[in-house]
Amino acid sequence: MAISRSPSPDSRKGRGAPSAEVPTRFGLATRETDGDWRDARGLVDKDVGNPEDILRTTVIEERARSILTFNQSPDIPFDRSINAYRGCEHGCIYCFARPTHAFHDLSPGLDFETRLFAKPEAARLLREALGKPSYRCAPIAMGTNTDPYQPIESRYRITRQVLEVCLEARQPVTITTKSDRVLRDLDLLAEMARHNLVAVGLSVTSLDPRLSALLEPRAAAPAKRLAALGRLAEAGVPAHVSIAPVIPAITDEFMERILTEAAGLGVRSASWIMLRLPHEVAPLFREWLALHYPDRADKVMGIVQSVRNGRDNDPSFFSRMSPSGTWADLFRARFRIACRKLGLNRQRETLQLDCSQFRPPPPDGQLALF
């Protein structure tokens, strides 16, 4: 398997993956720094140490042919999703979506968080998909493979454009994010909530900003995410806190405190997800552990393997979302007890987004007759 050359330590500041040196399933070619390019860059960035290695975020505009992705996975609660971007600048070291970058001959390591793709035609493509006679309405999930509110959303506003189409068509949407940038669309979300068309979940991993900066360096600080949950709840938007992922011996200590903080802000729905390490994520996470937590790396991976049938990752349907064993039972019990004490999830089963209002949107530039 091919190995990508690792940038210098200076270049990794503010990034999640310790390096690009991750074996891939697709034989990526080894990359070397070109000397002429390095010299020219040095003339431009004289004020930067090691200018040839500074990692900057680049965005490629992708001309997608479709925007709705359908799945038949039996253990997830949605059958369709929209990902307006590929890759994610948040740089969460544990992100299960990292391996998708390998399909583009890019590294699931640093490339995933620095070489991004945007789909500026997403709203138009969605309008076309919703307008097809064969379309049958069901909630669309956003934030499944990339964060819809990562930093480049400020520039592209693709997520907002998609939500505008969904509101027009009365198309229900669920959103998952790690960014308080979601509040920039609070006007749309509040109006969608008034029609029972939206639910928003924010993932909170810890309450320690220093730890968060290591785990998810360009995501919003934990306090900002919790504050965003409070603002959403106050505006009448169904707000959900997800403790995701739970990393044993590193973040699990925050479980009860996160739930307490969220409940105090008016959040009434919560969930947790155990750390998953599919494909290239496992070696990346092991490298991160060796760099930042060498004293407990063996313990962390020992617990991870104990809940994943002795492996770094269990890819099987159902069990991948339902870890087993003593440690998993302990986390599950802690979560259940805390939720019961705080009154969380009492109405979770009754929350159903309304698909009955759906109306196919007219094509761009045309007005509906009725």
Rank of each mutant, 00 (worst) to 15 (best):
P209W: 13
L211E: 14
S212T: 11
S212F: 03
L214P: 05
L214Y: 06
L215R: 03
P217V: 01
R218E: 03
R218H: 05
A219M: 09
A220H: 13
A221V: 14
P222H: 04
A223V: 15
A223M: 14
A223S: 14
K224E: 14
K224N: 09
A227K: 11
L229F: 00
G230Q: 04
G230A: 07
G230C: 09
L232Q: 02
A233G: 05
E234P: 05
E234W: 02
A235W: 04
V237H: 00
V237M: 00
P238Q: 01
A239M: 00
V241T: 03
S242C: 11
S242A: 14
I247C: 03
I247H: 01
A249S: 15
I250G: 09
I250C: 13
D252P: 12
D252M: 07
D252Q: 10
E253P: 02
F254I: 07
F254T: 10
M255K: 09
R257G: 04
I258E: 06
I258T: 08
L259N: 01
E261Q: 14
E261W: 09
E261S: 11
A262Y: 04
A263V: 01
L265D: 08
G266S: 00
G266K: 00
R268C: 04
A270H: 04
W272P: 06
W272Y: 13
L275E: 08
L277F: 13
P278T: 13
E280F: 09
E280C: 10
P283H: 06
L284H: 03
L284D: 10
L284N: 14
R286I: 07
E287I: 01
E287M: 10
L289G: 04
L289N: 02
L289P: 03
L289I: 10
L289M: 10
Y293P: 02
Y293Q: 06
P294M: 12
P294L: 13
D295I: 07
R296T: 15
A297S: 12
D298L: 09
D298H: 09
K299S: 15
K299Q: 14
M301C: 08
G302A: 11
G302C: 11
G302Q: 13
G302F: 12
G302V: 09
I303G: 08
V304E: 10
Q305V: 04
S306M: 15
V307E: 05
V307L: 07
N309S: 14
N309H: 13
G310L: 06
R311M: 08
R311F: 12
N313A: 10
N313G: 03
D314E: 10
P315L: 00
P315H: 01
P315R: 00
S316T: 13
S319Y: 00
S319C: 05
R320W: 06
P323I: 01
S324I: 10
S324K: 15
S324C: 11
G325Q: 04
T326S: 15
